[in-house]
């Protein structure tokens, strides 16, 4: 199962409306060519749900979503978002999981663009003196008959 050319165009439109390009934060939109290629390649087990969400979007828009005017697209996208449902959540999840692993986006969050392994991360010990009042507390578990 894969998306038709019309569905691909509509998915790209809705991705860009969901997460638009931002000059203020210097990040691409989710319709960026690299990010969108990742989205298409990553649909996997969410393909069926995404197709259903796009069909719902077309139904709201009264035709192929990608072919509507910008105003009509905004209106249809808002109505789809408000309607919600598992298919919309699935489609949104695929878009988000690809967008928030793009190097440019990750770096804009002051994160290193790398997998967790093998370098790992650092974690502060924290202030263990916070435990002092709890250490001073008498035992409070219930004894139980044998």
């Amino acid at each position: 199962m894969s998306l038709s050319p019309d569905q691909q165009r509509s998915l790209r439109c809705i991705a860009g409306l969901m997460i638009p390009v931002s000059t203020a934060y210097q990040v691409p939109g989710a319709d960026d060519p690299v990010i969108f290629a990742d989205i298409l390649a990553s649909l996997g087990m969410d393909t069926a749900d995404t197709i259903k969400a796009l069909a719902a979007l077309d139904a709201i828009a009264g035709g192929v979503f990608a072919d509507q005017t910008a105003t009509a697209q905004n209106d249809a996208a808002a109505r789809l978002r408000d309607a919600g449902g598992p298919e919309v959540l699935s489609m949104g999840r695929v878009i988000l999981q690809c967008y928030y692993r793009d190097d440019r986006v990750v770096r804009s969050l002051n994160l290193e663009a790398r997998p967790p392994f093998p370098l790992g991360r650092t974690l502060a010990q924290g202030d263990w003196s916070l435990l002092d009042p709890v250490r001073a507390r008498p035992k409070f578990y219930r004894e139980a008959p044998e």
């Binding site: 409306l17 997460i19 203020a24 934060y25 928030y100 994160l111």
Partner: peptide, 26 residues
């Protein structure tokens, strides 16, 4: 992580679609 923050933010309506997305996410 960055993805789960976005997924749960959107599922709980804390993360909007559109222009305000980036500010809300941060």
């Amino acid at each position: 992580g960055p993805v789960m923050a976005a997924v749960t933010g959107m599922a709980t309506n804390r993360l909007p679609w559109g222009e305000d997305h980036h500010r809300a996410y941060r």
